[in-house]
Amino acid sequence: MQTPLTHKLQIRYPILQAPMAGGPTTPELIAAVSNAGGLGNLGAGYLTPEQIDQAIREIKERTAHPFGVNLFVPEPFTESVDEIRQMNNSLNSYRARLGIAQDPEITKYAESFEEQIQAVLDGGVPVCSFTFGIPGASVIEALKQRGTVVIGTATTVEEAIRLEAAGMDAIVAQGSEAGGHRGAFLNRQDEPLIGTMALVPQMIDQVSLPVIAAGGIMDGRGLAASLALGASAVQMGTAFLACPESGAHPVYKQKVLTAHEEETSVTPVYSGKAARGIVTAFMKDMNQYAGEIPPYPIQNALTRDIRQAAAKANNPEYMSLWAGQGVRLATTRSAADIVRHTVDQAMSILNR
């Protein structure tokens, strides 16, 4: 189970818990995975600098082992008053059903990336990963000067080549099976959606960095297959969604435990950026929307009140239920049991 990446990260097993932003990655989950020999990761893309600082402190109270923090690299976007007005007119019908205010005032679309980075630097985080692009050279250099391992996310070989050239230490190869937001940053219009099995070996042949396989990996079978393809580790998200330490909403967990592999889809309707989740009534309705969906992070801010109200009402049909195509294999095992079971199963397969 030892690979170049486990040595670099100083972890026992080549298993990374995916940094699922929006609540699932609690300090309890992150610490449990790290204590079990994997690498827990905080999905901090939506957190304020103060929340990041607090979370880092809480994680460190629960584990002395390495862990990571993930941030979203900001992309340029165009704000269209007409697009926003048309979208709000459409979203107001959902607000009416949920009994919340129409046309809510939005003061900001996203947290300050610079302030988030400063919180990570101040926190002395062992690992920092990025999604949606490549941070500036000064950010990468500042992290490395603090001894932080820097990891990028790629959905194509070309994106991986760009990440290596930028100075990343490792690359997550995110296959199309993966739940949550797509990390694509070069193919914005017509994303190719390359599967993990096809993506990983092609990426390994073209870059010299350790590659982390992600997408559809739920247990030791996926770990063994990924190692056979040449990956240095796997990143598992959906596998941990329904575990006791996960901060996912109870109805979200229940949907994960009952959903089948054909019941997920990639959609931009919740956030303005392509993401894979369990199909909901909101997704079905909004897929018929005739106008232009505002880009991320505008659409994400516009739908936030609807998602939050749906969560309070225990109504999964208007929540974003991010999950991958391996969802049928999700269990209620504890995080530590998931790590142990994955390792034992992989070892059995590889020995056989």
Rank of each mutant, 00 (worst) to 15 (best):
P295L: 04
V256H: 07
S138W: 03
T332C: 12
A96T: 11
T25S: 15
G230V: 08
L199W: 09
Y252M: 07
N35I: 04
L5P: 01
A21K: 03
E245D: 07
G216E: 12
R307M: 13
L143A: 11
Y94D: 12
A323W: 04
P268Q: 06
C243Q: 11
A309Q: 04
M1V: 13
D285G: 07
F185Y: 11
E158W: 01
Y94N: 10
A336S: 15
E164A: 10
C243Y: 01
G175Q: 08
I52P: 07
A31S: 13
Y289C: 09
V33C: 02
L91E: 02
F282D: 07
P268V: 08
M236E: 06
E111V: 03
T342E: 13
G220W: 03
R57S: 14
A119M: 06
A36K: 05
G136R: 13
L257P: 11
Q145H: 13
K253Q: 13
A137W: 00
A233F: 02
A239C: 03
P316D: 10
A301T: 07
Q235C: 10
Y252Q: 06
T196H: 09
P74H: 02
A198M: 12
H341T: 13
F77H: 12
Y94V: 10
A166V: 08
E58V: 00
G136I: 00
E177V: 01
I298N: 08
E263H: 07
E263S: 11
S232H: 05
R221A: 06
P126W: 02
L47M: 15
E61Y: 00
G291A: 10
A275N: 08
G133P: 01
A330W: 00
E83S: 13
R276D: 11
I204W: 01
Q116W: 02
P297S: 13
E114A: 14
